[in-house]
């Protein structure tokens, strides 16, 4: 086909998608490209030195502070993803296979706790886990302990717990949807051909639910690695994550180029891990198309 006719055919589509596309171009692509550019500059007190340099990246990869932080963020995020998806699967499975007429009600019950501010939901974990928190005051009044436990708040575990809680419905829903799509006669066929219930679960249900599991994993993994609120509220210094450092470098330390470099490094890691994850699961996704 000629290029001219292709342009002509494209006009109708462009006219529609043009505005949202240009909006994305101006508010997403341009800013991220600028972020990349900025990461190759340096901050000199109040001025930007616009000579191209890898200094920021060198700094990140030579300072144990940054490396530890990035490693911890990735670890926390992977751990949150794995535990959230694993814990969510049986719930989604129960609702889909045994929910009966109460499916909608059960799904609604799951969402209720999430209809209040995200900040408050995270903050409430601080109240549960804190020095004078629910767990400590409860255990003390029951005489199990004399002194409040201090190891339960302000560390990575607290961050994992709060995040796994915050993202629970986002894991349950995609898995539930993929389980609902499974034609029940496939399972009957499996049983009919001699599979035990357990075998038919691993040979039919699980592979067919994989698109939902993959979606759930990415939906949880991507935002948690850049989470700012949770580590700030319940992580303490031990549970600090990369987003907190980006913010610190950006504002207090007034080193925007370093913040940009940190953002680019985290973004690359997110993209890389997601791609690797998708690559290893490609056979489950291809079948869907």
């Amino acid at each position: 086909m000629k290029f001219g006719t292709q342009i002509k055919q494209s006009l109708d589509g462009w006219r529609l998608i043009g505005t949202p596309f240009i909006f994305g171009l101006l508010l997403l692509l341009t800013p991220i490209l600028l972020l990349v550019l900025l990461s190759f500059w340096t901050q000199e007190y109040l001025d930007l030195n616009r000579t191209f340099t890898f200094a920021n990246y060198k700094e990140i990869f030579s300072h144990p502070v940054f490396i530890t932080l990035i490693k911890r963020s990735v670890n926390i995020s992977l751990f949150v993803t794995a535990s959230t998806v694993l814990l969510a699967f049986p719930v989604a499975y129960y609702i889909s296979f045994y929910g009966g007429k109460r499916k909608a009600l059960l799904l609604f019950l799951i969402t209720i706790p999430f209809w209040t501010s995200y900040l408050l939901r995270i903050f409430l974990w601080k109240i549960i886990l804190g020095y004078n928190g629910v767990i400590n005051s409860g255990l003390i009044s029951l005489n199990f302990i004399q002194e409040p436990l201090t190891f339960i708040l302000y560390n990575s575990n607290a961050v994992v717990l709060a995040l796994a809680h915050a993202w629970a419905p986002f894991a349950i829903f995609p898995i539930y949807v993929s389980l609902e799509k499974i034609d029940r006669s496939l399972l009957e066929a499996g049983r009919d051909l001699g599979d035990t219930a357990v075998r038919s679960f691993f040979r039919i249900t699980l592979p067919l639910a994989m698109p939902g599991i993959i979606a759930a994993s990415l939906i949880v993994f991507i935002p948690t690695i850049g989470d700012y609120v949770t580590p700030k509220l319940v992580g303490g210094t031990e549970g600090m994550m990369v987003a907190n450092m980006i913010q610190v470098q950006f504002s207090k330390a007034n080193n925007a180029p370093l913040a940009a470099a940190l953002a680019i490094v985290s973004l690359s890691i997110v993209v890389l891990i997601s791609l690797v994850f998708l690559f290893f699961n490609r056979k489950y996704l291809r079948r869907q198309i």
């Binding site: 800013p31 900025l38 990415l218 935002p223 987003a243 940009a260």
Partner: peptide, 14 residues
Amino acid sequence: FLPEIIVGVSILIV
């Protein structure tokens, strides 16, 4: 597919 902090920071820079 982008962490919010990155969206926020990059828009702020612009």
